[in-house]
Computed example of a mutant assay.
Amino acid sequence: MLTLTDNASAIVTTLVSRQSEAPDAGLRIHSTEAQGPSGESRLAVLVTTDPEPQDQVVEISGTRLFLDETAAVALDDKILDAGVDDEGAVSFAVLPQVA
């Protein structure tokens, strides 16, 4: 199951609270049509008030994530990390879980 670092949890919570006042809002992680250099799926994020009907809803320590089918499979055994650069841009990193 997907886990979040403390940084990712704090950043996602802050992003969602700044962009939506809806109590059940969350960060939606979904696949894009563009592919990576090796043909792999690329993922994108957006803050939304509700999940799409097919989304898997994951709640970790009050942080709500909505994962489309591709994202749910790709992130099932991963750790989501996040950071903010000096200019305020948020970036996410997907890390392997250590057994």
Rank of each mutant, 00 (worst) to 15 (best):
G39N: 03
R42M: 15
Q54Y: 11
P37V: 11
E59M: 04
L15R: 14
T48E: 03
M1L: 09
D24V: 02
L2E: 04
E59H: 02
L95S: 01
P53Q: 07
L2T: 11
I29K: 00
T3Q: 05
D76N: 14
P37F: 12
V57Y: 02
S41M: 09
S20Q: 15
V98L: 11
Q19W: 11
T32F: 02
D50L: 10
L80H: 02
V94G: 01
V58D: 13
L46P: 00
T70A: 14
G26W: 10
V90M: 00
V58R: 15
V98C: 02
G39H: 04
A34W: 08
D86E: 08
T5H: 10
I29V: 04
M1E: 13
R28G: 08
P23Q: 13
L95R: 06
S41D: 12
D86Q: 06
V73E: 15
R64L: 07
V12M: 01
P23N: 13
V57S: 14
S31C: 04
E59S: 06
I79V: 13
E87R: 10
P37T: 13
S17V: 00
H30T: 05
D76W: 02
V94H: 02
A82W: 11
E21K: 15
S41C: 06
A8C: 00
L67P: 09
G88I: 06
S91H: 12
P53E: 09
I60V: 08
A25T: 05
Q19A: 12
V94Q: 06
D68A: 10
A89T: 02
S20P: 05
E52D: 15
D86C: 00
F92W: 14
Q19P: 08
G88M: 11
V47H: 07
L95D: 02
L65S: 04
V12L: 03
V94M: 03
T13P: 00
D77L: 13
D50H: 09
G26C: 03
L65I: 05
S17Q: 13
D85K: 04
P51Q: 11
V90T: 07
L15Q: 15
G39T: 03
V45D: 03
S61H: 06
R42E: 09
